[in-house]
Design a protein around this nucleic acid. Structure first.
Length: 297
DNA sequence: AATAGTTGCAACCGCTGGAAA
DNA sequence: ATTTCCAGCGGTTGCAACTAT
């Protein structure tokens, strides 16, 4: 049942509008916010003559009309950042969105549900399961790093401003999947003081070794024949070929060829995530690192 | 060409916490 | 101290667009 909206000028009761916003409504809202600013959404809705709840106006402004809202596909950097931050913070969408300028919590939430959860389902995994986290850590995230590397200019300025590097610098958290064995930004292997100016990315697996060079080329990767050139690829990491690859791997058993069986911590707390150091000691760290991925920038 | 099924996204809903009355 | 209001958050739903049959 629709709520009742009182016409401010004459007190006449009118029905509140719901559903998709019209161009006229958008213009009204955008114009009013431009003139008077955000906030006091209920009052704003009335004053602007919008037959919408303040809540609806706020949502429309924040998720769609705000000038700095970025639209379009998530870049590999953004995808990597989402994965990493979700490991750390769980479904704290607004908190995650704060780290992706121009992206809204709604958009990130939708991305997670429509892409990430979908593929967890294809693998018959719970999205928060250790198994699925392994898939992300050992397959998707290295792949994203490869894509980022393949498309980035190896300049200090660029590297410094990339979400992945930003993330590493900001967090340097010991529970970060991007953190090195020392717990800090330990992936920078450079002989010069200009760390990260020359970038190479190495991802190792117990039974498969993949070395990605500066050009982002993969020497050995299951299913690598499916990949075309970078420019022809979708920015979506979870494209069909990956779905197929992962589905096959799942059919074979996630601990068979592609996904090693790790002695990961049993901590299922999404805030600490699979990379929580709470259950690790230094020797375990070494075990995990030797058995899994290592990232070198 | 028509229909059914699927997907992705925009919008809504209910809840919570903080501020104001 | 209590109540009310509101902003913000995460979960869920509705529907248009797309795809498969």
């Amino acid at each position: 049942m629709d709520a009742i909206w009182m016409e401010p000028s004459c007190g006449r009761a009118a029905e509140l509008r719901r559903g998709p916003w019209t161009v006229e409504e958008d213009a009204l809202l955008a114009g009013y916010v431009a003139a008077h600013g955000e906030g006091r959404w209920n009052e704003l809705a009335l004053a602007a003559g919008l037959r919408r709840t303040g809540k609806s106006c706020r949502l429309r402004w924040l998720n769609y009309l705000r000038p700095d809202v970025r639209r379009g596909d998530f870049t590999p950097r953004e995808q990597l950042l989402i994965l990493e931050l979700h490991f750390r913070w769980g479904n704290r969408w607004s908190k995650i969105a704060q780290e992706l300028p121009g992206r809204t919590d709604n958009e990130i939430k939708n991305y997670w549900r429509t892409r990430v959860q979908k593929h967890a389902k294809q693998l018959n995994c719970d999205v928060n399961s250790d198994q699925f986290r392994d898939v992300m850590r050992h397959v998707w995230m290295p792949r994203l790093l490869e894509r980022i590397q393949a498309t980035s200019t190896p300049s200090v300025e660029h590297a410094e401003s990339s979400p992945a590097v930003y993330l590493m610098k900001k967090s340097a958290a010991p529970n970060s999947p991007l953190a090195g064995p020392s717990g800090g930004v330990g992936m920078c292997h450079s002989s010069s003081s200009r760390a990260c100016s020359s970038v190479s990315l190495e991802v190792q697996f117990p039974s498969n070794q993949l070395v990605m060079n500066d050009a982002g080329g993969a020497a050995d990767w299951p299913g690598s024949e499916q990949r075309g050139n970078g420019s022809a690829q979708s920015d979506d990491m979870f494209d069909g070929s990956w779905s197929e690859l992962l589905a096959r791997a799942c059919e074979d058993g996630a601990d068979s060829v592609l996904f090693p069986d790790f002695e990961l911590g049993q901590d299922t707390d999404t805030t600490s995530g699979v990379w929580s150091t709470s259950g690790y000691n230094s020797s375990t760290d070494l075990q995990v690192l030797s058995a899994s991925s290592s990232y070198y920038y």
